[in-house]
């Protein structure tokens, strides 16, 4: 038994060492390619938030922001520079908060619009896409939480597979969402002139997007948002929260108000879900993404709501 266990432990150790070496080496090779893909926009967004004038408006949340917002319009209307720091909900809300914190200064305004499902999903930690961002920008390692470090072994295989796909399998495949589809403010423009694909997600049998009345709200996520709001208050930063864009048919009203109730002490730029709900034919490729030509309409609505709150 002793000999067997010794050999097994030795093999396991060599195996994990080997896996880590392959992981690090393949990640280093993949990094330049990966940074040209959609999540590579984080480098440009970081660059912008560091270099724009103070005070500024920072948009924080998932892709419902960058797909649906015209930051320049906000900038021109409110006469403050805007940095759209949103990427993709899968990255996890914790990442958004931690990655923008170092750049927030007194007098800034933060507009927070988490996706509806972010309130009920457990993976607000971001899981593998969080690790993808670490390949693009290794400095992000410092913002990984202990929980995320603990989860890392579960994703080693996944990352290896992704790296393999980028390097070998998908070498010649066309990238649909690339880094350069984002404009200077950080808004996504890759869906310009593209038609609605609502048929795909509105009839999604797997119910990925269909929120239910009895959806359980994730207390950890609520706490995370509250903590961020407290952080902003302490630093004299105004933080507004609102609902993200979603398909009218898929959000039950009760669920939306449940969210509002959980976070009622926060500053809401709108607590009326109807301000953010749209018909299926107005949506692009998910219930969170508007067609490009509705970006301005949506932005103007936010500006009006914000102005109201700022005057109060």
């Amino acid at each position: 038994m002793k000999k067997f266990l010794q050999k097994l432990i030795l093999f396991s150790f060599v195996f994990f060492l080997f896996a880590i070496i392959v992981l690090v080496a393949s990640s280093a090779i993949v990094a330049p390619k990966l940074s040209k893909r959609g999540r590579g926009c984080v480098l440009d967004k970081l660059n912008r938030i560091q270099n724009i004038q103070q005070p500024k408006i920072v948009l924080v949340g998932g892709s419902n922001i960058c797909y649906n917002t015209n930051s320049k319009l906000i900038e021109d209307s409110l006469h403050m520079p805007v940095a759209d720091m949103s990427i993709n909900a899968n990255v996890g809300m914790q990442f958004y908060f931690e990655s923008v914190k170092p750049y927030l200064k007194s007098g800034d305004i933060v507009i927070l619009t988490p996706e509806y499902d972010a309130y009920s999903k457990i993976n607000f930690l971001g899981d593998e896409s969080m690790y993808e961002l670490n390949i693009i920008h290794p400095k992000f390692i410092s913002i990984l939480s202990a929980k995320q470090w603990l989860r890392l072994p579960l994703y080693i295989g996944n990352i290896l597979k992704d790296n393999y796909n980028i390097l070998v399998a998908d070498k010649n495949s066309k990238i649909s969402n690339g880094r350069y589809d984002y404009n200077a403010w950080g808004d996504y423009e890759g869906h310009k002139n593209l038609p609605s694909q609502s048929g795909k997600f509105m009839n999604n049998k797997e119910d990925d997007y269909n929120l239910k009345e009895n959806q359980i709200i994730n207390e950890d996520f609520i706490q995370l948002v509250k903590n961020f709001s407290i952080y902003c208050k302490q630093k004299n930063i105004k933080c507004f929260i609102g609902y993200g864009v979603y398909a009218k048919k898929l959000v039950p009203e009760e669920y939306a108000f449940k969210i509002h109730n959980e976070l009622k002490e926060m500053n809401w730029f709108t607590n009326n879900p109807n301000d953010c709900l749209y018909d299926a034919n107005q949506l692009f490729d998910s219930p969170n993404h508007l067609l490009f030509n509705l970006q301005n309409q949506r932005t103007e609505k936010i500006i009006a709501l914000l102005k109201k709150q700022l005057h109060n």
Binding site: F15, F18, A19, V22, L154, Y155, I156, G157, N158, L160, K161, Y164
Partner: peptide, 8 residues
């Protein structure tokens, strides 16, 4: 390593 990469 192949198993690990496909385990998910």
């Amino acid at each position: 390593v192949f198993i690990l990469a496909n385990f998910y």
